Simulated assay, not measured.
Amino acid sequence: MLHTGGESGTATAAHFHADLVERSYSRLSGVSSGHGEARRMKGTVEVDYRGMNGARQYGWYVPLPEPGERVLSRPLIVNDMVIFTSLLPASDAPCDMAVASWVNVLSLVDGLTPRRRNGDDDSAGPVLDYNQDGVLDASDQVDSQAVVAVKVGGETGSLRLEGDRLEVDVSGANGSAQVLDWRIQLDATGSTGRVGWYQLR
């Protein structure tokens, strides 16, 4: 969940789900063999931070759809994106090792698919090199949709960015370890602009 926090000139304001915009994942069916299950983000309506079309909205949140799915590590903030992993434990026991994980890449400001150029279309380009061929192009989309989350087997560790490559350590139940990486499209279409500010005295 993301929100803007306290408002300028007021005591710390508490904001709840009703003040935020709910986002929703949708699983993509036509996934590439050997490249993991994939998700897209539904919707295109941005968060109305200024309340121009009704009540002011203070951010967004996304329910994690799989049973027991949880976020246990800090997200990585890169340009206009928030990148995080979510784990799927083998059971409801909180200390069980994850049997699978999702690597998620969303718009920091709106929780939507980060805007990337795809030919003449400024909003439908691939964000993540889903098929891991080193090229960001239409073949990284599934069902003509940009992939924002990829499922991997095992438990993921911390994320890191090396140039334009997103890397994550993955541990298997049998003690195996590997590093997975994807090219990531860092450049957004247009400019994000100022999200918020604080006056320092």
Results as ranks from 00 to 15, higher is better:
residue 87 L to C: 01
residue 117 R to G: 02
residue 134 G to H: 14
residue 83 I to M: 03
residue 101 S to K: 00
residue 124 A to I: 05
residue 92 D to A: 05
residue 94 P to S: 05
residue 133 D to A: 07
residue 118 N to Y: 06
residue 124 A to S: 12
residue 107 S to K: 03
residue 119 G to N: 06
residue 94 P to T: 02
residue 122 D to A: 08
residue 143 D to M: 11
residue 84 F to S: 00
residue 106 L to C: 02
residue 126 P to A: 03
residue 142 V to S: 09
residue 94 P to N: 07
residue 83 I to W: 02
residue 108 L to I: 14
residue 123 S to W: 06
residue 129 D to F: 05
residue 120 D to R: 14
residue 93 A to N: 09
residue 135 V to Q: 14
residue 114 P to G: 14
residue 138 A to L: 12
residue 112 L to R: 15
residue 113 T to N: 13
residue 90 A to K: 11
residue 118 N to M: 08
residue 92 D to W: 00
residue 93 A to P: 01
residue 82 V to P: 00
residue 110 D to S: 09
residue 120 D to G: 10
residue 107 S to I: 05
residue 105 V to G: 01
residue 113 T to R: 12
residue 115 R to K: 15
residue 108 L to K: 14
residue 118 N to G: 10
residue 108 L to Q: 10
residue 84 F to I: 02
residue 93 A to H: 08
residue 102 W to V: 12
residue 112 L to V: 15
residue 78 V to T: 12
residue 128 L to N: 03
residue 137 D to W: 04
residue 138 A to T: 11
residue 116 R to K: 13
residue 100 A to Y: 03
residue 97 M to Q: 13
residue 140 D to I: 13
residue 130 Y to T: 08
residue 114 P to V: 12
residue 133 D to Y: 14
residue 140 D to K: 14
residue 138 A to Q: 14
residue 108 L to S: 09
residue 78 V to K: 07
residue 115 R to D: 14
residue 87 L to I: 08
residue 104 N to H: 14
residue 135 V to N: 14
residue 110 D to H: 14
residue 80 D to Y: 08
residue 97 M to G: 11
residue 120 D to F: 11
residue 83 I to P: 00
residue 120 D to T: 14
residue 111 G to D: 03
residue 100 A to I: 11
residue 133 D to Q: 12
residue 89 P to W: 00
residue 141 Q to N: 13
residue 115 R to F: 10
residue 142 V to W: 13
residue 83 I to H: 01
residue 126 P to S: 04
residue 90 A to N: 08
residue 115 R to V: 15
residue 144 S to Q: 09
residue 145 Q to W: 03
residue 88 L to G: 05
residue 133 D to L: 13
residue 81 M to S: 08
residue 91 S to T: 01
residue 91 S to E: 02
residue 116 R to Y: 10
residue 137 D to V: 08
residue 96 D to Q: 01
residue 97 M to N: 06
residue 123 S to L: 06
residue 134 G to V: 15
residue 97 M to V: 07
residue 81 M to T: 12
residue 126 P to L: 04
residue 124 A to M: 05
residue 144 S to F: 09
residue 123 S to A: 08
residue 107 S to C: 10
residue 85 T to H: 00
residue 82 V to A: 01
residue 134 G to R: 15
residue 129 D to Y: 06
residue 144 S to A: 08
residue 87 L to W: 07
residue 118 N to E: 11
residue 142 V to N: 13
residue 129 D to N: 05
residue 108 L to Y: 10
residue 121 D to N: 12
residue 137 D to G: 08
residue 135 V to R: 15
residue 88 L to P: 01
residue 89 P to Y: 01
residue 85 T to D: 00
residue 78 V to P: 06
residue 126 P to Q: 04
residue 88 L to F: 05
residue 85 T to K: 01
residue 123 S to P: 01
residue 122 D to V: 07
residue 111 G to V: 11
residue 90 A to Q: 13
